[in-house]
Amino acid sequence: MKVKRGPLYWRQASAGLLFVTPAVILITVFVLGPLVFSFYISFFRWNMLQPLSRAKFVGIGNYVRVLTDETFKAAMWNTMRFSVGMVVLTLAVALLLALALNSKIYLRGLFRTIYFTPVVTSMVAVAIVWSYLYHPTYGLFNDILGRLGIKQMGFLTSTAQSLWSVMLVNVWKRAGYYMVIFLAGLQTVPAQLYEAARVDGANSWQMFRKITVPMLRPTVLLCVVVATIEALQVFTPVFVMTKGGPADSSLVAVLHMYDTAFSYMQMGRAASMTFILFVLIFIVTMIQVRLMQKGGVEAY
């Protein structure tokens, strides 16, 4: 039976529309609008200093140029490696911290605060301080290594170590955030399950494997998706600490886009990189969502 939409319905609906309108306007102006414009400009050769009327239509020329550009390929490869390393390490550390802080330990609240503090610290400030820690000559890390009789490491000045050095900073900064999410997930696991397991003679490792891990699966998979999207878009620590060097060893996709747009004045080419990265993130996310569904996470 069709419901008649009377004046009350429209009154309520218009109130709702009024409340969401500011958000819709903001999203349209600052997200959708630039997104559509970026897509449009990705088919042109244009730098933002020129009027749009001087933009030259190149069709898929920018996409072809980018996909055949060795620097872009290197940046994408670095981004993938960074993302895998960062997601695995960050979530492993976060889970361990959450498990430790879920138990009744002394000063639990203080430790939770300490581990969360890096999350709320400015990434630029963190990156600058870590740059000093990593300094090959004067840095604290090499000082400690020296006292332990270990050869100095290049860290940010080494092509082999620069990407991982930046990744560690990100792990340190973000682990606290996922720790909080895991803590919330752990607290939804019914205590009776652990009690029953103890009665049946299960040890801690068995309880972790058979109860904690399956019950945490939705939380873990959510964190994997979020952390992956975040890692694929890494920019600030690389920009502050290495600028993608030495020799592009720590160059990531978003930094390369930034250089292309603002240093080399190729806004159209940079826009095409944006959409290539968007497609990549979309594919990766879809794969993860499928895995979640196969893993029995019905909500996804």
Partner: peptide, 9 residues
Amino acid sequence: QKEIESVLN
């Protein structure tokens, strides 16, 4: 610059 850095490394 990047190619020279590759050589110097």
